[in-house]
Design a protein around this nucleic acid. Structure first.
Length: 483
RNA sequence: UCUUCCUUAGCUCAGUUGGUUAGAGCACCUGACUGUUAAUCAGGGGGUCCCAGGUUCAAGUCCUGGAGGGAGAGCCA
């Protein structure tokens, strides 16, 4: 019976700091953030970015024990929760006894109770969880992850595990990492000098997946509504604040949906998960909002963004995403003051693949909110996107978010076998190898649509962080696979 | 991959026209103080000036090459 009562009594710091109860004995465990005045421990246990103040009676405490209360030491403190005499907190724990669970050598421990650069923390990514910023980021990352599952599960989508190792290399979504057990020192070659994979693990060349979309389509054309949420790999030599070699992607795919319903689903999903994360972790949003405001203050006035983090997120929840066709977007760019003053580095004309500067103009200057651009020229989009009746465009959509750029890319898929095969021929996609994909069009095809959401870009947007390497615990980028 | 900027103490940075023994704040150690909020005060220790080569009587400083990092771009999510 007792163990049930204990199980019901949460005594993590988040719960204690609610201050609903005082004058009771408890034990807390966590890591020391600071130890001020030989008297006040700021203790963090990861449940919240707020610390619990432990008050130590240093006159009646072993001097040797006090010396071991150093930054990041792990301790257990037993005492009574009381209303605080000080100003910075409502309740505090008056310590009766303190146990050191794990020492932390203050001379060697690299983190200090002060501001560190994100670049420095990236070099010690194994320790950066212990900072306020990364605590907040990873709690929000978790909430967003759960929010995505919650959203789709409430809508009765089937969570589908697409394969991580894939033999298909025909998607053209990017360079792939090879998966092999061949001896790299002595690769078997065929008569043409190419690597012979027949004795490799799979008996053929294999790669890490760049997308689960094609497999999701197979499932959607039987299960109706599906989504994937898993790791994805791109071996591109991309060195930007928005790209990772290993990232997580969400790819819903829905039978019978057309482009508009696809866009509606994407917009509803983004709003749902952002609201969920904000409601789940308001403290972390507040902290990151303040952090961003502080960072903005360092910038020259003309480079500062006009919205704070919370303002931006609330605005996103309250407003309908702007929807324009590609053709309309190009027209807006051509009519823009920026274009007339020749501010754009790249040319603007119908048929171009819009550059970052164009997307940023649309989102940040013209509409000042997320924009869904639809119906792109077919020549700049993938083979599986459904051709529109005009013969020039496809039923594609990109969602562009302020500060991030493309956060979602999706389309209605080409369900007509003859159109699809023709397009694959034009784009030199090996039709025979893709028989399994084309079988969906041969046997009971139907209209369907889906999209891909880069999960880390969503986390970037919600946390207000500037670099994608700071929203995934262990970033994988070119020349970086530490930890 | 391209453009550009950066690399000096554990961290953040200063270092003048090339000139003696390379500095500050924070952190750390020692002591004082004890209701603090990145506590405060006093003292102390701490350096491969990213690496290699060059110019010079003399290089942290100038030149060449390389490595690593940031920002922007391309590719994309």
């Amino acid at each position: 019976m007792l163990h049930i009562i204990f199980a019901l009594m949460k005594n993590d710091i988040k719960e204690i700091l609610k201050g609903e109860k005082v004058q009771y004995s408890t034990t807390v465990k966590g890591w020391v953030r600071t130890f001020r005045n030989n008297q006040f421990i700021a203790l963090n246990d990861g449940s919240t970015n707020q610390n619990l103040q432990i008050v130590v009676d240093f006159n009646n405490m072993d001097e040797f024990l006090l010396k071991r209360i150093t930054t990041s030491a792990c301790i257990s403190a037993t005492g009574v929760i009381q209303a605080s005499q000080g100003k910075g907190q409502t309740v505090e724990l008056i310590a009766e006894s303190i146990k050191i669970l794990g020492d932390s050598d203050a001379e060697k421990y690299p983190l200090q109770p002060k501001k560190h650069s994100l670049e420095f923390l990236r070099e010690i990514a194994h320790l950066r969880f212990r900072t306020n910023t990364f605590g907040s980021v990873f709690r929000l990352r978790n909430a967003l992850s759960y929010g995505i599952h919650k959203f789709f599960q409430e809508k009765d989508f089937i969570y589908m595990h697409s394969p991580i190792i894939s033999a298909s290399d025909a998607e053209g979504a990017g360079e792939m990492f090879k998966v092999t057990t061949l001896n790299m020192e002595n690769l078997p070659k065929d008569e043409n000098g190419s690597v012979d994979y027949t004795n490799d693990f799979f008996g053929r060349a294999a790669n890490l997946t760049v997308s689960g979309q094609l497999e999701a389509e197979l499932a959607a054309l039987a299960l109706g509504k599906v989504y994937t949420f898993g790791p994805t790999f791109r071996a591109e030599n991309s060195n930007t604040a928005r790209h990772l070699a290993e990232f997580w992607m969400i790819e819903p795919e829905v039978a019978f949906n057309e482009l508009k319903e696809n866009a509606d689903l994407a917009e509803e999903m983004l709003k749902y998960v952002i609201r969920y994360a904000m409601e789940k972790h308001p403290d972390d949003i507040d902290f990151l909002d303040a952090r961003l405001a502080e960072e903005e203050k360092q910038k020259p006035t003309n480079e500062r963004s006009e919205f704070g983090l919370k303002e931006k997120l609330n605005f996103m929840l309250d407003s309908d995403f702007e929807r324009v066709t590609y053709t309309e977007a190009i027209e807006i760019l051509l009519q823009s003051p920026a274009y007339k003053k020749k501010k754009f580095q790249y040319e603007v004309s119908w048929g171009i693949d819009m550059q970052s500067e164009h997307e940023r103009y649309l989102v940040e200057k013209h509409f000042k909110k997320p924009v869904i651009v639809t119906d792109y020229p077919k020549d700049i989009k993938a083979f599986y996107m459904r051709q529109n009746d005009d013969g020039k465009t496809v039923a594609a959509m990109d969602i562009l978010a302020p500060g991030i750029g493309e956060i979602i890319g999706g389309s209605q898929r080409e369900e007509r076998l003859d159109y699809l095969e023709k397009r694959m021929q034009e784009m030199h996609i090996p039709i025979e190898e893709m028989y399994w994909y084309l079988d969906t069009r041969r046997y009971g095809t139907c209209k369907h649509a889906g999209f891909g959401l880069g999960f880390e870009r969503l986390v970037l947007f919600v946390t207000g962080m500037g670099n994608i390497r700071d929203v995934i615990p262990f970033p994988r980028t070119p020349k970086n696979c530490e930890f």
